[in-house]
Amino acid sequence: MAKPRIKVPKKASAGDVIKIKALVSHTMESGQRKDKEGNVIPQKIINKFECTFNGTSVFGCDIDPAVSANPFLEFRAKVAESGTFKFMWTDDDGSVIEAEKSIEVS
């Protein structure tokens, strides 16, 4: 399964709004393309992304085929305490790619 690449600062001060960047390798087959025989290649994309911090939802998105291959997302999060960010990408076939990143908040 594709390995996600995630950027979260290692340290922050309480109350800081931090930048998070997340990218996962995925073809994001749009369902619009055709193969050599002219058959439509069926859609297979990541349709959902979720990010939680210590179990509370921070950011999420519902994704349609118009998002590029290897979907890249950048967003912000406000941190009040040390903890762990959890990232989840859901594929059309139901499989889920998961990753975690910890942050130390002083």
């Binding site: 998105c61 118009a66 998002v67 590029s68 967003f75």
Partner: peptide, 26 residues
Amino acid sequence: NPRPEVITFNFTPLSGEAFAATRMRL
């Protein structure tokens, strides 16, 4: 585009700032 929907970003109060970026197909 063949389908008009691209993406929906869902924010929460924990987002801190309503900012999001991605890359899309046109």
